[in-house]
């Protein structure tokens, strides 16, 4: 998996396994990162627009599994489900209960 070496980790309380796929240019992606940080939860992220073509395709393939539209941001939770877009309430709930 080529893109995996570009995954970055943000430290915080370990709630669930959170993997966030983002674009550096996207306002909703920036808001999602900021809120997760404020909520103090641990999460990983990868900026897909900065990847080389092959890694980009790999990352999109993984995203498609959880979000067929492959839209940004996509937050994959415990490798079982995804939150797509900037969903303030769902992220807060996740930080409380997950």
């Amino acid at each position: 998996m080529g893109y995996e070496k570009f995954i970055k980790q943000v430290s915080g309380k370990k709630k669930s396994d959170l993997m966030l796929f983002t674009l550096t240019t996207c306002g909703w992606c920036q808001k999602t990162k900021k809120l997760l940080k404020e909520l103090g939860v641990e999460y990983k992220y990868v900026d897909v627009d900065l990847l080389e073509d092959k890694d980009k395709q790999e990352a999109q393939k993984i995203m498609t599994r959880w979000n067929p539209r492959c839209s940004f941001p996509t937050l994959v939770i415990n490798n079982t489900r995804a939150i797509t877009g900037f969903q303030e309430d769902q992220l807060k709930e996740l930080a409380d209960n997950a």
Binding site: C29, V48, S71, F72
Partner: peptide, 9 residues
């Protein structure tokens, strides 16, 4: 080379 949507790849 063009201004594509910042929230789409």
């Amino acid at each position: 080379g063009y201004q594509s949507c910042p929230c789409r790849l």
